[in-house]
């Protein structure tokens, strides 16, 4: 499930960064082109706002231009970019009134005394395809992601959406691998529960027909 950057891409990127550090502005243009979509996508998914995502992308690309000499190559260049993107997105979020988050614990699975699941679990995994890219489904998914507490949300976005490895997400967020795993698992349980309400209803509608 995890995506690792192909070796050639990584080498090319390292070469571009060195060239840019040496003053080659064309190398910067290529770096900006490679990262623009990633920066915009991550900040949009965090802020849910086009203007904010545009501001963040601009700020990050300018920071890369101005601060490239401070990048020492101790971690991967992409980790550095992701970290700057997260900080800029958080600044945007902090400046806004925050909706109270729902308690994630309330949506965790519940068990009886013997350790068996208490609720009825339906398998809707086969019924998602026809619904996947409808506006209604997209809204349900976006709302569910919005409700995730920030700690869990950022891990989910880096690991499951951006496809980074657990180790890399930990490096970016300064978290241990077990901490990344535990937050990701909680995020997935929370989202599964939120999506279950929607897809189960659709599945039962389909059976009735």
């Amino acid at each position: 499930m995890s995506f690792t950057q192909p070796k050639e891409d990584k080498k090319l990127e390292e070469a571009l960064v060195r060239e840019f550090q040496g003053g080659n502005l064309e190398a910067y243009d290529k770096i900006a082109e490679i990262y623009q979509k990633k920066i915009y996508g991550l900040s949009f998914n965090l802020t849910r706002n086009q203007m904010d995502a545009q501001d963040v992308t601009q700020e990050v690309l300018l920071t890369l231009f101005r601060k490239i000499h401070t990048f020492q190559g101790k971690s991967a260049f992409s980790s550095w970019v992701y970290r700057i993107t997260l900080n800029a997105s958080y600044m945007k979020l902090r400046s806004k009134k925050k909706e109270p988050n729902v308690s994630i614990d309330e949506l965790m699975p519940s068990f009886n005394g013997a350790g068996f699941q208490q609720e009825k679990i339906q398998d809707w995994s086969e019924n998602t395809e026809s619904l996947l890219f409808t506006n209604e489904t997209r809204d349900v998914i976006n709302k569910a992601i919005d409700l995730l507490p920030e700690k869990e949300k950022v891990v989910f976005l880096l690991r499951d959406v951006e496809g980074l490895s657990t180790e890399k997400a930990g490096e970016i967020l300064d978290l241990t691998v077990p901490a990344v795993k535990s937050r990701l698992h909680r995020a997935r349980l929370f989202l599964r529960k939120k999506l279950a309400n929607y897809f189960e209803e659709f599945t039962s509608r389909k059976v009735e027909k």
Binding site: Y40, P109, L132, I141, D160, R188
Partner: peptide, 25 residues
């Protein structure tokens, strides 16, 4: 029920990833 849970846990990741990755500049 646990098989259903496992399958839907897995597809939660897929569905969310496919949806959120659609963001274009």
């Amino acid at each position: 029920p646990c098989i259903s849970f496992m399958k839907t846990y897995k597809s939660t990741t897929t569905i969310c990833r496919d949806t959120l990755n659609q963001v274009q500049v």
